[in-house]
């Protein structure tokens, strides 16, 4: 065995579990490095370039149409990031974050360490949340750069504030969806279909039902946090955007309520995920 140790020393060995916070931090760091090397992350990053291309196209073809950078940013987050990009990225990062290791058998190496399962789960989850938030924030940062390249006049305090607010909303959305999908990935043997059904089916269906039913979707609460510019559009694309916004208008709820709902869902999903993970058995 390792030099300077022998079986007699072992009787004095500490048998307390590792403290959960440093253990989770170690696992989060290694998991983050693992997740950013996955091929699927390259595909997701490419998908996240979609809004950048949209902003570029608007800049090139509709630069004179009165679409302000603030309107563009608000519409992007409201109509592209929240209903599409955040769920997709969080789904393909969050679902395999924990379940995949159990299925392929590599979890055995962490399960046979003196680390509580909740620390293992939360470490992996934190990595999945961070990766989702990084990919989405990167995409938004590129959009910001393209918008700012219009000229110095764009860079107003209001615009910067709206950008920072949007980054926070996207991070909150990524964290909440990733927690939810990680729990789905821990519970189901084949988790992608139910996760897709939730993201594409339930969220779209509920969001478009009037009255309070729409509040049963994460999308509603994320969109509720977006501050949309009130200035009247002077051009056709701006007018179309305003019309669409009116058609899908929903009664807002207080922003604090939406934040509370999103944080609450994240915590409940994480708790549920830990509970499921503690009962998990090795497959291979």
């Amino acid at each position: 065995m390792t030099p300077a140790t022998n079986a007699a020393d072992q009787s004095l060995k500490d048998v307390s579990p590792q403290r959960s916070v440093p253990a989770a931090a170690w696992l989060a760091w290694y998991s983050l490095r693992e997740m950013i090397r996955r091929r699927r992350l390259v595909a997701l990053t490419l998908i996240c370039l979609l809004p950048v291309l949209m902003v570029l196209a608007i800049r090139i073809w509709f630069s004179q149409a009165g679409v302000t950078a603030q309107m563009m940013l608000a519409s992007l987050s409201h109509d592209v990031f929240i209903p599409f990009l955040i769920p997709v990225v969080a789904l393909f990062v969050g679902v395999p974050a924990i379940g995949e290791q159990v299925d392929d058998g590599t979890i055995v190496f962490t399960w046979t360490r003196p680390v509580r399962r909740r620390a293992i789960y939360l470490g992996r989850l934190l990595a999945a949340q961070a990766v989702s938030a990084l990919v989405l924030s990167f995409s938004l940062a590129l959009c910001f750069v393209v918008m700012v390249s219009q000229g110095a006049g764009v860079l107003t305090w209001e615009f910067i504030r709206l950008y920072l607010q949007t980054v926070l909303i996207i991070i909150l959305g990524a964290f909440t969806y990733a927690a939810l999908f990680a729990a789905v990935g821990t519970f189901f043997k084949k988790p992608i279909p139910p996760a897709l059904m939730y993201a594409v089916g339930w969220e779209s269906l509920v969001t478009n039902i009037p009255a309070r039913v729409q509040e049963l979707s994460l999308r509603f609460h994320l969109q509720n946090l977006i501050t949309r510019p009130t200035e009247s559009p002077k051009s056709l694309p701006g007018l179309l955007g305003a019309l669409l916004s009116t058609a899908f208008h929903r009664e807002p709820v207080p922003k604090a309520e939406s934040v509370a709902v999103l944080v609450g869902v994240m915590l409940v999903a994480a708790f549920l995920g830990v509970w499921l993970f503690r009962r998990k058995e090795i497959a291979k």
Binding site: Q10, K13, V15, P17, G105, V108, T112, R113, P114
Partner: peptide
């Protein structure tokens, strides 16, 4: 789980990170 400090396990499965 603290007792895993005194236990080593080498699985049959070839799965490694």
């Amino acid at each position: 789980v603290g007792w895993y400090r005194r236990v080593g396990f080498c699985p049959e499965s070839d799965a490694l990170p």
